[in-house]
């Protein structure tokens, strides 16, 4: 198992390096920071622009290989260069990564757990009302793009706020400035953060739950008629107990394969969620930096995304090994 994981990790590492390099080269070729700098008012002189671009390692008059080597050398030393505004990419990246994590964690966990349970339940109640409801619900949710879902939730929240006359839901940014100044201080600030978290978390959880429910339902259907579930019932377990202890437990194993796929969807969803709800996380950064032509940031976020996707892959491998004893004893 350990050897197998190490080999997988090595393969992943090569893939990350290649993916990041490709992303850098693509961004450096396709984006045009010079034009953006020239557009500033007052219009800077060509020499100033050149100097600025060179300082940021963005000068399109420097040959691409050299720019790439400069960038790669920095990355190897743990330095992703500077943003367009001249700040260090590293510091900003960590700050924003935490923002994204705060945003995504709740939604992903909530959506995953709820989706798995819902999918398993739907499979057991196959073709009856709960199954139909869950299946069509999942269809509908999967057909709604994140940017539409978010707006719909905002719309609903606005109505709730108006009806109750409160600010139960808040959806701009992570917190209201000055929320912690009230009588309860820190508690107020916490409640305020929770209010801000509610809608984006729901946005993410809905999409994730729909995906997980679809997969889990299919996997669960496959084990419903499995011989070992029948054996468990022949031992004296009730249908429900046999399905939970033997069926669901086994049907969870292939789910780990879907995990890394679902994780990709999560990252993508985060871009829309962050943009729409005004969270200054990685997703928003990526979108903004592409618009601005900020090559270093684009490359850094690409690197970051590749690493997280691969970590998710490793995580699902490990999970697979934990859940499936057949893998633990397999060497390949």
């Amino acid at each position: 198992m350990a050897g197998f994981l190490l080999r997988r990790l090595a393969n992943y590492a090569v893939l990350v390096v290649l993916a990041a390099s490709l992303a850098y080269v693509l961004a450096a070729c396709a984006l045009n920071p010079r034009a953006n700098l020239m557009d500033r008012s007052p219009r800077p002189s060509a020499a100033v622009v050149d100097a600025e671009l060179t300082r940021l390692n963005l000068n399109d008059r420097t040959p691409l290989p050299r720019r790439y080597l400069t960038w790669a050398d920095g990355v190897l030393h743990g330095d992703f260069g500077h943003t367009w505004e001249g700040e260090s990419v590293n510091g900003e990246m960590w700050r924003r990564a935490w923002v994204s994590l705060r945003l995504l964690l709740g939604g992903a966990v909530l959506g995953g757990v709820f989706g798995v349970l819902l999918g398993a339940y739907a499979a057991v109640r196959r073709d009856r009302f709960p199954d139909r409801a869950a299946t069509y619900g999942a269809y509908l949710l999967l057909s709604v793009p994140v940017f539409v879902l978010a707006v719909l939730l905002q719309y609903a929240a606005e109505r709730v706020n108006a009806m109750t006359g409160t600010q139960l839901f808040a959806w701009v940014g992570e917190s209201t400035p000055g929320a912690g100044d009230g009588t309860f201080g820190g508690l107020d600030a916490l409640a305020d953060r929770a209010r801000h978290l509610l809608l984006p978390t729901l946005t993410i959880a809905f999409g994730q739950a729909a995906l997980y429910a679809r997969y889990q339902r299919g996997l669960m259907l496959d084990v419903l008629g499995a011989d070992f579930v029948r054996t468990a019932r022949a031992k004296g377990l009730t249908r429900r107990a046999a399905l939970l202890k033997h069926g669901l437990r086994t049907a969870l194993i292939p789910m780990t394969t879907y995990f890394s796929y679902t994780f990709g969807m999560l990252l993508l969803g985060s871009m829309f969620t962050e943009k729409i709800f005004g969270w200054h996380g990685m997703g928003e950064w990526l979108v903004d930096s592409i618009s601005r032509g900020d090559v270093n940031v684009v490359a850094a976020t690409a690197c970051f995304a590749a690493v997280t996707v691969l970590l998710a892959g490793v995580f699902s491998d490990v999970l697979y090994g934990i859940l499936d004893p057949r893998v633990r004893t397999r060497t390949r």
Binding site: R217, G218, L219, D222, V223, D227, T257, Y261
Partner: peptide
């Protein structure tokens, strides 16, 4: 194939049981 998701390899192992149970019935 009713239940397949993005990974058919993971699928193949499990469906064998279901399919057999189905044809047996």
């Amino acid at each position: 194939l009713a239940a397949s998701g993005p990974s058919a390899e993971a699928e193949a192992e499990v469906t064998a049981d279901g399919a057999r149970a189905g044809s047996g019935a």
